[in-house]
Design a protein around this nucleic acid. Structure first.
Length: 557
DNA sequence: TCCTCTTACACTTTTGAACCGC
DNA sequence: AGCGGTTCAAAAGTGTAAGAGG
């Protein structure tokens, strides 16, 4: 296992030392970046050039909707979990820069325990209610666009709004399973696809945790202030705004209440205060227990040890627990801007939103920087150069002081280890990450259910997790799975023509391009077979769109 | 009694098929 | 035939309130 002590990581440290972000912006302790490599192919504690590929890049990840997250966080974010799965609000949306534009990456998100405590809501605050229940097997959400080249990931904000949380451990539809009344924090994985020229190199990956997006999983909202924030900001909850006066049920109730009213009390209230919310609730002074203070980031080793060894996730965990520094040892930079995207509508913008002309000058220029072919051959530091904070300063701000800049989104950047950053609230700089909003995505483009099969591994496999190489290899070829003819797999192929997934693992991984077509067809088919084997109606239905998705990917639609 | 969880409900947004005109 | 825009019904995503269950 490689220990990435600072002196052993010259490749990692150099770009960050050179980047003037480190000099101009305050550190932010709550976001974490963990570079991790497969250990067995390192030589004498040093990374091979291929392994160094991802971790040597000045990868920046920023959580969007930072203002909204902060609003929730200041109260104590709660996320509803249901049996059928509930989306997060706010959802995790990140911008990534600094990737190699031509290298393919898989982007994954999961939820890790924030601490080892269980909580309960006591009247007006969260309190510790014992220690944590045994952690559930990690379910991770593989972004449906995975794998994709770095330029694609950097082109638009990466939205995880389709990630669903559940408390149903039996659910096999790819939902993230959490314990109610436990606190979690989102974690992002950027996994470099395996190197086709080196079958033994499975690729590196980076992990980013977002303590500022930590939340307590609940089956029913506890804090009325959180409910109010959700209603005010989530378009789907518009029907509950104005305290739900426009809702039939409440109208009826209001009518009844008016008839039954004994007068004075409700007349003293504002017109809408007595609907769905008591006066007592309005007067609640919301406080959050110090035990859930988001600054109390858990040691990474604690997180890792609490994660049940799902084959995929365990591959990450096993690599990181022995040598990777704890989150407190990695330091990040927080940067804020005033670009605020806080609704699904904005996340799925009209075509007008895609016009660079609508963006500020610096945004447009940076959009070009992340997508233009002329930049594709740049060195990593050059690739990220358009994000030079000083340039953004020049475009957006008159003040030279980071603290004086406009709040908004955070920027995370790997910093030299063992530095003690100042508190972000006093040193929140502003770097505008200029990403256009993504085009409208079709629901047909969701191969999530197929990807779920990557984690629906029998319990016995937990003992001997499949190599990361094998899992990544499956993902690696997905977009080309329809084969060279593009739409050749509009109809699902005959399952008997291909090996089953478990049988395939007996064969060696073959990476050369010649083999790709066979491998791709198999990969797709094994996914589809696996779907039908699970007898999930939802998964079965998705089989057809999946093939269409791959065809469209192949034909460049 | 308290706490946690499930369910049905009304409401809103999103999605995609079916048109229509060019 | 292909493309783009519009319409509309169905699906999906919301929090609420009632009630079940431990």
């Amino acid at each position: 296992m490689v220990m990435y002590l600072p002196e052993e990581r010259p490749v990692l440290d150099l770009p960050y030392q050179m980047n003037h972000l480190a000099n101009n912006y305050g550190y932010y302790p709550q976001d974490c970046k963990e570079p991790i490599c497969r250990p067995q192919h390192s030589t004498n504690g040093r990374m091979s050039s291929a392994e160094a590929e991802l971790t040597s890049l000045p990868v920046h990840v920023s959580l969007q909707d930072r203002e909204l997250w902060d609003k929730f966080s200041s109260i104590g974010t709660e996320m509803l979990i249901t049996k059928s799965g509930r989306r997060m609000f706010p959802s995790c949306k990140v911008t990534v820069t600094g990737l190699n534009p031509k290298v393919k990456y898989v982007v994954i998100m999961d939820m890790v325990p924030f601490d080892n405590r269980k909580y309960k809501w006591n009247k007006d605050r969260w309190e510790v209610n014992g220690s944590t229940d045994p952690h559930l097997p990690n379910r991770f959400f593989i972004h449906p666009d995975s794998p994709a080249p770095g330029e694609k990931w950097m082109q638009y904000p990466i939205s995880f709004h389709k990630l669903k949380l559940t408390n149903n451990m039996l659910n096999s539809n790819g939902l993230v399973v959490l314990h109610s009344m436990h606190k979690y924090q989102p974690r992002l994985h950027i996994v470099q696809s395996p190197d086709p020229c080196n079958p033994h190199n499975p690729g590196c990956y980076l992990r980013f945790t977002f303590p500022e997006a930590a939340f307590i999983a609940v089956t029913a909202y506890q804090n009325q202030e959180i409910t109010k924030l959700k209603i005010d900001n989530n378009p789907f909850a518009k029907g509950f705004r104005d305290n739900g006066l426009n809702r039939k049920r409440f109208r009826d109730k209001e009518t009844q209440d008016t008839q039954d009213s004994d007068g004075p009390v409700k007349q003293d209230l504002p017109p809408n205060e007595h609907v769905g919310r008591s006066q007592k609730d309005e007067d609640v002074d919301v406080t959050v227990s110090s035990s859930v203070d988001s600054s109390s980031t858990q040691h990474f080793s604690e997180v890792a040890s609490s994660v049940t060894p799902n084959p995929f996730i365990s591959a990450f965990i096993n690599l990181s627990t022995a040598g990777a520094p704890s989150p407190q040892q990695t330091h990040t930079i927080l940067s804020l801007s005033n670009r605020h995207l806080n609704s699904p509508r904005e996340a799925r913008p009209s075509s007008l939103h895609n016009l660079c002309a609508s963006l500020p000058m610096a945004q447009s220029s940076c959009v070009q920087s992340s997508t233009a072919d002329t930049n594709l051959s740049r060195m990593p530091s050059q690739i990220s150069s358009p994000l030079n904070p000083q340039q953004h300063h020049h475009h957006h701000h008159h003040s030279s002081s980071p603290a004086s800049q406009t709040p908004g989104r955070s920027i995370i950047q790997l910093q030299p280890y063992f530095l003690t950053p100042p508190h972000p609230s006093r040193q929140c700089p502003d770097v505008e990450l200029p990403l256009p909003l993504p085009p409208k995505l079709s629901r047909m483009q969701l191969p999530e259910s197929a990807l779920r099969n990557l984690e629906m591994t029998p319990v016995s496999d937990y003992v001997n997790p499949r190599p990361l190489t094998d899992i990544l290899n499956r993902i690696h070829f997905r977009p080309l799975a329809s084969g060279p003819s593009g739409k050749g797999l509009q109809n699902p192929p005959n399952p008997e023509q291909y090996l089953r997934g478990s049988e395939r693992e007996l064969f060696p991984q073959i990476y050369p391009a010649v083999q790709e077509y066979i491998d791709q067809q198999f990969t797709l088919n094994s996914m589809l077979n696996s779907q039908t084997e699970h007898r999930s109606q939802m998964d079965y239905v998705s089989a057809r769109p999946l093939t269409e998705y791959y065809s469209e990917q192949q034909t460049g639609k």
